[in-house]
Design a protein around this nucleic acid. Structure first.
Ligand SMILES: [Mg+2]
Ligand SMILES: [Mg+2]
Lengths: 488, 488
DNA sequence: AAAATGTTTATAAACATCTCG
DNA sequence: GTCGAGATGTTTATAAACATT
């Protein structure tokens, strides 16, 4: 850690050669280590449009982010969107002083995460200027998502200022208004490319500016500018927020524990279910399974779905789910699959759909839902399938499952584990403090009523989404810095 | 664990419904739990062609297999090639009594492995016969590989009977003869399909019988019978065994350990290198990197490759590597990619090849080799790329790396970690005892000599390969039970 | 030769989801 | 019929062994 790294960072300008040809914008010390103040100024000026001078984060406390997130923060903070291991170390230590004094082992974890997760890709430059150099970069989807520390901190600030509405009862916060239709975002301004057109790694992308479309209007495209320019994406997308569960209720840790050792549940609000994201095709074949669930009538409810009554109460009419976009399946087919458009879940009890196309969609048969369903904050839960045709394969009366989160973009907050080596309540504690575990859960009243067939969709207000991102709903926003994956 | 599992296994005949239509072969209790003796007889008779009555394995000692391997053993032991979690537990406990009394937590690890590794796929059957049931099965490549406990035990027995030639010096066993050309296997007999043609999961495949082709002849196809019948594979393959390193020499565990805590090396035979498998195209472009390594002359050695002298001594001429199959690239292009043909490594110091095709090949630039290279036993080291076009992407003077082992088929032995909860020397200890860590390493004499440019290829004798599998070289062999991936 | 870097497995645990008594 | 305990499934953290640079 010492000698070699020090040299590389402070003195040696670990400037990425990718950016050497440029001079004006990128010729700064974007990775600081000397005079933090001076550096801070430069950085704020160059890369922080928000202008909030928050360099050191979560001082001395362990940050509530997973290593996976931290590494993405680091890599995305660099103009070239790639970093050497040393630089990743240094960036994390710089932004999260906790790691400066952290028990050694965290670097091991960093390397472990880099190797383990496929979103982190190692590049080796040819040793044209001497020896080969290894850089860590992100897969295409992660580059697009462009997860940054700024996003998170904006979010945190938001949380501090206007915290989530108080929890009315234990574990059952009130429901928030949810509009019916899908949401659409349309690009309004496409600023001139930031003079770095030739960068193949999407590094230092210029931000596209979008404006929220009035509700009820139909899908228009939301497209990052660099993609628009290349003409790869021109089809509209719809936004379908995704349900989730409540957090913050202790469950028994693991069933393998001998019964005497198992922790007792604190709140017996058991049977929490979060339907796994479901990818469906509006014009797809009929469900393979016929067990009720689809018809929101009281009679059907009674039919033979043992213990599933409350599920149905939260199952919106299927036509509701598809109504906002009749041409959705055609759109799907015409999409550039490289983009991995994200359609998040609707709590649809459609089980085992038989997809008629050659590219199966991702599905997890929702025997779904439960008693107390909730809505996860979108930013915690938007995940991207790694490959277009990954997902559930249904044939021959069986169904194969692929976790949509697997090595893609797991929730960034709320799943960070408590560090064994840190005080204890830092991990999840700080999360709960910010109200982050399960931001907009459903009210219990809505759950209990039978035959509640009002058009309560699972669509989360997109305004709410933006609010949680720390952005205003109608205002223009810098799309370059938030996740496109969460918007498409 | 108790009641529920017990019921499902002993009484309930956790017979896979996939096999219900059949009656003669599969209608047995292939997963035992009651009267082990009776069961053993049936099993031996039905599924163990070898006829060696070795049911309980590694009695009370922790088996030297990774969880990943154990799970594959279990799943592949079932006719339907899929198992419920309970059945996996039971099978492992049955074959490896160690786990009957093992510290709880191993089941957690089993589940962890099932979820983590993509080769394990969860299937859910439609609740046609009542409720939905989850089965764990294997990805296509793993189904083909069909790793079984029998393979491993045959191998172990082999080791015990004719152990690897004594280690001459500490850590440097003698080299074994290695022929120059590639190897080819050709199918000789294709027995009639075992009446289970309709099984889409490749379950209970009939065995193809192959015979080893005399050396020096050119590639002929080796094809599992079920594939031949379906006509999906008709192109010849070549066999390129793969180099490896020696095992059993302690290295300092992790550099993150503070220097005082780091374990001291036992044998200073440091700098062991195992080149990562390299996928190359014989007709590819020239190497991107020019730094020596390719020219096996003494002058070049001295040039500026500090500390790399001995590498070159073990770098065979590149033309040697490509000579056996001139039409290899055409073959590659014509291959059914579903099969994921495996070409293992040659210790080729070709770095960063610029592949001209649209489907990049998997490459790890071998700055390669080292002082004491060795050959891993092929069965330990044949890995399969998960997707045809995964691998190295070379463009723009940089190279992206994809570990070929990643979640595919890592070495089964020799990398099993010592259990924290088990005595200690059980894990690696039993391996070394059998001479498994690095079966046919190179002799030290061959390493030391400078300018040793004799045509010492890294090709391992295919006969040796089979020998290590416990099979005779020229005899017909049951291909249905060994890994096709290791042969193709 | 030592240290940094990279890959993989083991273990524990948190948490979600599902099953079954 | 419901509920809740336990089984099953997913993911992250940590340590470590080992390979490679
Ligand atoms: Mg990686
Ligand atoms: Mg899996």
């Amino acid at each position: 850690m010492r000698g070699q790294q020090q040299a590389a960072i402070s003195g040696g300008h670990s400037q990425d050669p990718l950016l050497q040809m440029d001079d004006s914008l990128t010729n700064i010390h974007w990775l600081g280590k000397m005079g933090a103040n001076t550096l801070l100024d430069r950085q704020e000026r160059s890369y922080n449009r928000i202008g909030r001078p928050q360099r050191k984060t979560h001082d001395s406390n362990r940050p509530p982010y997973s290593y996976m997130a931290l590494i993405q923060f680091a890599i995305n903070s660099s103009p070239a969107r790639r970093m050497t291991l040393k630089e990743i170390y240094a960036w994390i230590e710089d932004r999260f002083p906790y790691f400066k004094t952290a028990k050694q082992g965290w670097k091991n974890s960093i390397r472990h995460n880099l190797s383990l997760h496929d979103i982190f890709i190692r590049e080796t430059t040819k040793c044209e200027s001497g020896r080969a150099q290894s850089y860590w970069t992100l897969c295409h989807e992660a580059l697009e998502r462009c997860l940054t520390i700024d996003q998170m901190e904006r979010r945190e600030a938001q949380m501090r200022c206007r915290p989530v509405p108080q929890i009315t009862r234990s574990g059952t916060p009130p429901i928030l208004p949810r509009p019916l239709g899908g949401y659409a975002v349309v690009p309004v301004v496409l600023p001139a490319p930031g003079s770095r057109d030739n960068n193949p790694t999407l590094g230092h992308r210029p931000a596209g500016v979008v404006r929220i479309q009035p509700k009820g209007q139909l899908p228009v495209s939301v497209t990052p500018s660099h993609l628009l320019r290349s003409g790869s994406v021109t089809t509209p997308r719809t936004i379908f927020p995704k349900p989730a569960t409540q957090h913050g209720i202790k469950r028994p840790s693991d069933s393998d524990l001998p019964p005497r050792k198992r922790k007792s549940m604190i709140s017996p609000t058991s049977s929490q279910h979060r339907p796994v994201p479901t990818f469906y095709r509006p014009s797809g074949a009929s469900p393979l399974k016929e067990t009720t669930n689809l018809t929101p009538t009281k009679e059907r409810v009674k039919e033979e779905d043992v213990g599933m009554r409350s599920q149905l109460l939260w199952s919106p009419d299927s036509h509701l789910l598809f109504s906002p976009d009749k041409g959705f399946s055609e759109l799907l087919n015409s999409l550039d699959l490289e983009i991995s458009p994200l359609r998040s879940v609707l709590r649809t009890p459609v089980i085992g759909r038989n997809v008629a196309t050659s590219t199966p969609r991702k599905v997890t048969p929702p025997k779904t839902s439960s008693r107390s369903p909730g809505l996860l904050s979108p930013i915690q839960d938007f995940s991207i399938p790694k490959t277009p045709d990954s997902g559930l394969h249904s044939s021959n009366s069986l169904t194969q499952h692929v976790s949509p989160i697997k090595d893609s973009f797991p929730p960034l907050l709320g799943r960070v584990q408590k560090s064994k080596t840190s005080p204890g309540q830092l991990g999840l504690g700080s999360l709960r403090e910010f109200g982050l575990p399960g931001l907009t859960p459903l009210k219990e009243e809505y759950q209990g009523k039978e035959g509640d067939h009002e058009p309560v969709t699972q669509n989360l207000s997109f305004g709410k989404l933006l609010e949680e991102l720390g952005l205003d709903t109608i205002a223009e926003l810098d799309v370059g810095n938030i996740s496109f994956s969460a918007i498409q």
